[in-house]
Amino acid sequence: MKTITMADVAQHAGVSKSTVSQYVNQRYDYMGEKTKERVEKAIAELGYSPNIIARSLKQKSTTTIGVIVANILHVFSTQVIRAIEDFCNEANFHIIVCNADDDPIKEKKYMDMLRAKQVDGIIVFPTGGNLALYQQLVQDNYPIVFVDRMVPEVEVNTVLLDNEKAVRMGVDLLVEKGYQRIGMVTPPLEESVTPRLERVSGFKQALKANNQNFDPNLLVSEEIENIRIKLDELLQQPQRPDAILAVNDRVLFEILHYIKEKKLSIPDDLGVIGIDDVTFASFYSPSLTTIAQPAFEMGKKTAELLLNRIQNKTQEKETKIYRFEPLLMQRDSC
């Protein structure tokens, strides 16, 4: 079959080729309604499809961005991605989502792939393991925004929760409720994973502010698959915790599974607060007190920063850390 061109549409509609081009690129400022209808009808009748690759080359833009998430299993990550997609869709941009599994090698492969596909910019939940690559992107004036994690050596706009405040809200509530021995459970404390480090730091500060001593025996830092084993050890101690803060949603899942297995009662046997407002928190029995991240607002801000950077095409004079406020969702688990 003959490929339908823009010239064919123009001839069929009785308009100029430039008018068809303006219609395809949604530039309607000086186009009458009847002209728009004729072009639209011609496109439908001929089955014309714009050559996206040719248009990208001409405009020097693919209207596509990449999003590399550290671990897509987190509820927070999927909510941020959804907000990014919503914002980009409104701006007629597309997104390609990649999951790095917290693996710097995989992250680098995705970065190389996305740049080979000539995406206009990249949003990254950085693993922290590709410092030279991040710095090269900045040096090349390539649009990039970090979310959820900081890389202090790289001058990039970064969107984060106020992690220390989130933990402080949880500790304050537990102390107010009369809990005396508050524990925390987290995946391994890695330098590159900003939320874990900041939340543990905030935990220690919040205990001190509430005149409670930090007991290292009540802090569990372990791989997700081993958390239930460590919880068993934690709760077998003579001075066991009477409440636990879960650093993120995946840790909370493990704590809830453990409590069900051991037939413990929340909050009678153990008070529980999770950071990340999981979707089932309000109808779990008992309903779960959580510290919510404003994930959709954070995702929107991240996309806005990147698209502004792409469309302005200028090197930023100053990069910023954008901190978002956590929200206490007080329910029945403590």
Score class of each variant (00 low, 15 high):
I4L: 09
A13T: 14
A13R: 12
V15T: 08
S18V: 09
Y23W: 01
N25S: 10
M31D: 05
G32Y: 04
T35Y: 02
T35A: 13
E37T: 10
R38F: 04
E40Y: 12
E45G: 04
G47M: 11
L57W: 13
K60W: 06
T62I: 06
T64G: 01
V67G: 00
V67N: 01
V69G: 13
H74W: 09
Q79E: 15
V80P: 09
V80D: 04
R82L: 11
I84L: 13
D86E: 15
F87I: 11
C88W: 03
I96A: 10
D101S: 11
D102R: 08
P104Q: 07
K106V: 15
E107A: 10
K108G: 01
M111F: 11
I123C: 01
P126F: 03
T127L: 02
G128H: 05
G129C: 08
N130Q: 09
L131S: 12
Q136C: 13
V138E: 06
I144C: 05
F146T: 03
V151P: 00
E153V: 00
V154R: 04
V154N: 05
E155I: 09
V156T: 06
V156S: 00
L161E: 00
D162S: 11
A166S: 07
R168K: 14
L174Q: 05
L174C: 07
V175F: 03
E176P: 09
Q180A: 11
I182E: 12
M184L: 15
R196K: 07
R196I: 09
R196H: 04
E198C: 06
A206V: 13
Q212K: 15
F214W: 01
P216G: 11
V220E: 00
S221E: 03
S221H: 03
E222F: 01
E222A: 12
I229A: 08
K230H: 12
L231K: 12
L231E: 04
D232P: 02
E233A: 14
P238N: 11
P238H: 10
N248S: 05
D249G: 13
D249M: 09
V251H: 02
I255V: 15
Y258M: 06
L264M: 13
L264H: 09
L264T: 02
S265L: 08
P267E: 03
L270W: 09
L270R: 10
G271I: 05
G274A: 07
V278H: 02
A281H: 11
F283E: 01
Y284Q: 04
S285Q: 15
T290C: 15
A292Y: 03
F296W: 14
E297T: 08
G299K: 10
L306A: 14
L306K: 07
N308F: 06
N308S: 13
N312L: 06
E318S: 15
F324L: 01
L327V: 14
L327N: 05
Q330S: 15
C334I: 07
